[in-house]
Amino acid sequence: MSYSKIKSDVFFVTKDKPWEQAAEGITRQMIGYDVNIMMVKVNFEKGAIGYIHDHFHSQTTYVESGSFEVTIGDDKKVLNAGDGFFIPPNVPHGAVCLEAGVLIDVFSPIREDFLEISHEKK
């Protein structure tokens, strides 16, 4: 992939963007990105699990709706609509959806692995 070509459209219209399956009960929609930053809308069904994982990206997340039990390192907290969290690079984290909802994830730098999955489906 050429880094100069890695960028999203300037405007994001929800109905025009595809959702992709991320895991069982979890779908995601790329909102906006370039090589430095990426925003992703993630829809969770009740009971869906974002299993514990880690990555070298910094991540901050806003809980748009729903309720989630979020684990970051050794800390665990239930977060609801309007709450958020920050994950430093390489810290294990995950979430269990207690009430169906949407998370808005922001990553720096870009999650190239998300784009590779997205491009494979085209």
Rank of each mutant, 00 (worst) to 15 (best):
E24V: 00
S4E: 13
Y62E: 14
I117C: 02
I31C: 15
D74R: 11
G32W: 12
V10Q: 04
T27D: 04
L79S: 03
G47W: 07
H119G: 10
I26M: 09
G66I: 13
P89H: 07
A22I: 00
L79G: 08
E24F: 00
E45D: 14
K46Q: 10
D113Y: 02
E99N: 15
E20H: 11
K7Q: 04
L115G: 02
K76Y: 03
I72C: 07
A95Y: 01
H53V: 01
V35H: 08
K46R: 10
T71K: 08
D75K: 14
F86W: 10
F68A: 04
R111S: 01
K77V: 14
K7I: 07
G25V: 09
V13N: 12
S8Y: 05
S65G: 06
E20L: 13
S67Y: 03
L103K: 10
H53D: 01
S58T: 15
I37A: 09
L103Q: 08
Q59M: 00
F114C: 07
G66V: 13
S67W: 05
I117G: 06
A22F: 06
V106Y: 06
V102Q: 14
V78P: 15
V106N: 15
A95R: 00
T60R: 01
P88Y: 00
D113A: 03
V70W: 12
G82C: 03
H119I: 06
V40K: 02
P18L: 13
F68T: 07
F12I: 00
I117N: 09
R111Y: 01
H55G: 03
V96D: 00
V106I: 13
L79V: 11
